[in-house]
Design a protein around this nucleic acid. Structure first.
Length: 408
DNA sequence: CTTAATGATTCTTA
DNA sequence: TAAGAATCATTAAG
């Protein structure tokens, strides 16, 4: 086990053998020349011959000195060559991948990262809704799976890398017996190996990132994993819609309030109203029953006491909204009170009532406490001509016989 | 399995 | 830029 000793010897600049005394130098010079000649001639010889020669040279008394000199030369030249290409600049893409994996909780600390990422994903999905924990646990599971695979693979690569590195080191050490091997060279070798393996790791990271992205889009794309709103939420929304039927455009504040009340986001409220308006308008008959139900509900609650001024048709939009969008918009409450004869559609009544209020066919545009979007303040004061039951429903046509399909 | 309902998205429009 | 309109994708009901 004298290899390290040789290496050390080679490293030290002062490890040079003392210069041969000039006086009795003659025979030594000859010696050296001989050796060099033999070395040069080795390549021209057969393998067996060369082996024999090698052995002879190894046993030569001048061998250590020559070896050291060679080491010295090699290190000096090698240094100048290599120093330029050191300092790999840390691949920015690798950094990006690392960051992403860290952020997604695939890399990084054990369990905390994963759950944190899942929580972040939950937050990103926007739902405060309490009932989506199932999907998120599912998401977490899948993420954990990815994470597990990732780590297993990573470990495999790491292990392979280490194994290969030690193997190469051993080889080099072995070779350092017969040829000069500078520590720098070993370092460089190790660096090369690591780079190779890290490029494999990069591929792993890349595909892991892709997998996570796909998983995310799967779970976070609400369109794919749509959940119906809770019954209560739908009720709240419908209540608002039908009690503001003349102008079902909740203000930002109202939307906020509704969102909070329903446990959904504001944009979900907007979506809901958008869908509701268009679908209501498209087939009013279909919604009559619903309208009646909510009208009754609202009416009932009105009789049970609403905030003061709620029924005043002339109430301008007072800053309001602080409390609620609730029942104050009473302008439409009468809408569709069920007929006593079983015919539940009283368009005529509505029409007359509306007219009696001295406004367009849609009742007073500005019910109490509402902040309407400017867009809806059209000349006719309504949100859509066809949107009113009175004009959209043929008298002879019940809701059941409505055939103007939704084409949905 | 088929179909209606429904939440979301994506364009178009004013 | 928000609403309308068309469409998509999923859920729930039959």
């Amino acid at each position: 086990m004298d290899e390290p000793g040789r290496l050390l010897q080679a490293r030290g600049a002062g490890g040079l053998p003392p210069p041969p005394p000039s006086e009795p130098g003659e025979p030594r010079k000859r010696d050296l020349g001989e050796i060099l000649q033999q070395i040069m001639a080795i390549t021209d010889q057969s393998l067996d011959e060369a082996q024999a020669k090698k052995h002879a040279l190894n046993c030569h008394r001048m061998k250590p000195a020559l070896f050291t000199v060679l080491c010295e030369i090699k290190e000096k030249t090698g240094l100048s060559i290599r120093s330029s290409q050191e300092e790999e600049p840390v691949d920015p893409q690798l950094m990006r991948l690392d960051n992403m994996l860290l952020a997604e909780g695939v890399a990084g600390p054990e369990k905390g990262g994963g759950s944190a990422a899942a929580a972040a994903a939950a937050a990103a999905s926007g739902g405060v809704s309490p009932d989506n924990s199932i999907e998120h646990s599912d998401y977490r599971n899948k993420l954990a799976q990815i994470r597990q695979i990732y780590h297993a693979e990573l470990e495999k690569y790491e292990q392979a890398c280490n194994e290969f590195t030690t193997h190469v080191m051993n080889l080099l050490r072995e070779q350092s017996r017969t040829r000069p091997v500078a520590p720098k060279e070993i370092e460089r070798m190790v660096g090369i190996i690591h780079r190779k393996f890290s490029s494999i790791q990069m591929q792993l990271k890349q595909s892991t990132c892709e997998a996570v992205m796909i998983l995310r889009s799967r779970f976070l794309d609400a369109r794919r994993k749509r959940r119906n709103f809770s019954k209560q939420a739908t009720e709240v929304l419908n209540e608002y819609f039908y009690s503001h039927l003349s102008n079902p455009y909740p203000s930002e504040e109202a939307k906020e309030e509704l969102a909070k009340k329903c446990g959904i986001t504001i944009s979900q409220v907007s979506n809901w109203f958008g869908n509701k308006r268009i679908r209501y308008k498209k087939n009013i008959g279909k919604f009559q029953e619903e309208a009646n139900i909510y009208a009754v509900k609202t009416a009932v609650s009105v009789t049970h006491g609403t905030p003061s001024g709620g029924t005043s048709p002339t109430t301008p939009s007072s800053a309001g909204s602080g409390g609620s969008f609730n029942l104050s918009g009473s302008g439409d409450v009468f809408l569709g009170l069920p007929g006593l004869n079983g015919d539940t559609y009283p368009p005529a009544q509505v029409e007359s009532l509306r007219h009696s209020m001295g406004q367009g066919p849609y009742g007073e545009g500005l019910a109490a406490g509402q902040l309407y979007s400017p867009r809806d303040m059209r000349a006719n004061g309504g949100w859509q001509e066809a949107a009113t039951p009175s004009s959209a429903m043929s008298p002879t046509e019940g809701p059941g016989s409505v055939h103007s399909d939704t084409s949905n």
